[in-house]
């Protein structure tokens, strides 16, 4: 079966680039490469962690924590086979960690549906155009877990299998979330 290459977004680095930066950071402590990794993971990380944490600053903190750990790993960084999956998994774990410690600010993964709509989060500050804002409002109305899975697949070139691994759910569940998201977005975007 021929696979169509997905997602050609300009902010997304190829796996080869990620591997190169990983190597440069691990062995050369290369600031430029670390900076590129940061630029690659930070925006998505903040969006992703906001699924779990009510306050934007907490999401930013969680993402920065994960990035710091990457830097401190030194050469061990090269032991990571798939950096993309590793980092996203770390984001989720860190966010759940923070959510546990800051209960009153956190979302319950399964329960809360539309609180995301009134978020004052960094992702809202990143919105630049009206059309995108409409799409983002539609996204906000998705159940948080469904939205997290959708963002993962949309923005990181994750396969369903990788997304399943990151979220700790079955591959079929990923598929179900994506279908739900598409159906709900289709209804909401009835222009």
């Amino acid at each position: 079966m021929t696979k169509i290459k997905l997602k050609q977004g300009e902010n997304i680095a190829s796996d080869d680039e990620l591997r190169e930066w990983q190597h440069l950071v691990a062995y050369h402590r290369d600031e430029q490469a670390y900076r590129r990794l940061f630029f690659h993971f930070y925006p998505l990380g903040v969006r992703f962690c906001t699924q779990y944490l009510r306050r934007g600053e907490l999401a930013e903190e969680a993402v920065a924590d994960v990035m710091t750990n990457l830097w401190l790993m030194g050469k061990k960084l090269m032991d990571i086979q798939n950096l993309r999956v590793y980092v996203l998994k770390a984001f989720r774990n860190k966010a759940l960690d923070y959510a546990e410690k800051n209960r009153k600010f956190s979302f319950q993964e399964e329960l809360v549906h539309d609180m995301a709509a009134d978020l004052q989060s960094p992702e809202e500050r990143m919105i630049s155009s009206e059309a995108v804002a409409a799409i983002d409002r539609a996204l906000d109305s998705l159940p948080p877990k469904c939205r997290a899975v959708f963002l993962l697949v949309r923005e990181t070139r994750c396969t369903y299998r990788e997304a399943a691994e990151i979220m700790g759910i079955a591959e079929n569940t990923v598929n179900r979330h994506i279908q739900t998201a598409i159906r709900q977005l289709a209804a909401l975007l009835g222009l």
Binding site: R35, Y42, P122, E123, M126, L151, R154, E155, L189
Partner: peptide, 30 residues
């Protein structure tokens, strides 16, 4: 619109990421 919602990655404000990186780098133990 639906196609774009499903395929585009979110817009990124480079300046805010830049600022976040500068803050982050200052605090990073080397």
């Amino acid at each position: 619109a639906l196609y774009e919602a499903c395929t585009g990655s979110g817009p990124v404000d480079q300046q805010s990421v830049e600022a976040a990186f500068e803050r982050h780098w200052q605090q990073l133990p080397s």
